[in-house]
């Protein structure tokens, strides 16, 4: 029994979520290996080899894997699958894109969004936007799954590094190409890795007002998120969305500003350790999950908060 984790990275750095996945994989039991597939990504493999609990790193470095296109990646992973009982990826847009394709090629199911490992074949996952938790037993010989990083602590890193094995299979399905990418650059921590998140909703009024959240975030070293309503209204780009279909986060502190607390938003943040809600509507459902609620006009509270922090 051994688990292969498909690493989340951007060819330059290994994302923090991989540490959470190593921890989740170690609960399954057996060896844990990590596949770094990309282009010019040796440096990523180097950092992967220093994660405590990883027995081996596989490096597939080729232009065909540069953008981790599902059509090419799935072939590579299926090729490696014969040595593994479990194939695991983070429940990010990368993992969600690739893993069902892998599962179908192997004629097995995929278990999505695992939040708890009960044994090597039994896992818990949220359904109905997190309003119910299903415990599911896999009947397949190979378990293919995506795992929610925020539900597991991160594994540690060490100075010692394990062996990096080069995989030289190159699969190019030739049916898809990446032609453009708009990557949002930010000095702030990533939403899914941040300890503190300040999020704005429709109550922010417009995109410019998000700069008021930035000021608070700067003081706290926080990431800035948004509700679906704020993204739909065009205030901020989609990569900031926290919620059922956006990013799932569980920071130490989540400050929801001008967010009413729709079910689909709560699904993305209700596992945060401490939740603060700032909203002028006392009846807003967000207060039902908030540890600390402040009923006030956010345009008064935010400058005050930035000032006093």
């Amino acid at each position: 029994m051994a688990t292969l984790i498909i690493a989340e990275h951007d060819n330059q750095s290994l994302k923090a979520v991989n540490l959470n996945l190593v921890n989740a994989a170690s609960r399954i039991g057996g060896e844990v290996h990590l596949l770094v597939a990309g282009y010019g990504c040796q440096v990523v493999a180097d950092s992967a080899s220093k994660i405590t609990g990883v027995g081996k790193v596989l490096l597939a470095d080729s232009a065909v894997y540069e953008h981790q296109l599902a059509e090419n990646m799935s072939q590579l992973i299926v090729d490696l699958a014969k040595d593994y009982s479990h194939l695991v990826a983070p429940a990010t847009t990368m993992g969600k894109n690739i893993m069902p394709r892998v599962a179908a090629l192997l004629d097995v199911a995929q278990i999505s969004d695992v939040i708890r490992v009960d044994s090597d074949d039994t896992f818990a996952r949220p359904i109905y936007a997190g309003n119910a938790i299903a415990t599911v037993k896999s009947l397949d010989r190979i378990k293919v799954m995506t795992v929610r990083g925020s539900s597991f602590d991160g594994a540690a890193e060490q100075d010692l590094s394990v062996v990096i094995e080069v995989v030289d299979s190159v699969y190019d399905a030739g049916i898809s190409n990446l032609i453009a990418e708009q990557v949002v650059q930010s000095e702030r921590p990533e939403l899914t890795a941040a300890n503190v998140i300040v999020s704005g909703g429709r109550g922010m009024g417009n995109g410019e007002n998000f700069s008021m959240l930035d000021e608070v975030a700067d003081k706290l070293g926080a990431a800035v998120g948004a509700s679906r309503a704020a993204v739909d209204a065009g205030f901020v780009p989609n990569d900031m969305q926290v919620g059922q279909t956006g990013k799932i986060v569980a920071p130490d502190l989540y400050i929801a500003v001008g967010i009413s607390g729709a079910i689909q938003h709560l699904a993305g943040m209700k596992d945060s350790k401490v939740i603060v809600a700032i909203n002028k509507d006392e009846e807003a459902p967000i207060f039902q999950v908030a540890d600390y609620g402040l009923v006030t006009d956010l345009f008064v509270a935010l400058p005050d908060l930035a000032d006093k922090l």
């Binding site: 898809s176 032609i179 708009q182 990557v183």
Partner: peptide
């Protein structure tokens, strides 16, 4: 155009 965690990505498919 795909909504991905890092922003937006455009792929061309046959």
């Amino acid at each position: 155009s795909r909504e991905v965690d890092s922003g937006l990505q455009t792929v061309e498919l046959a």
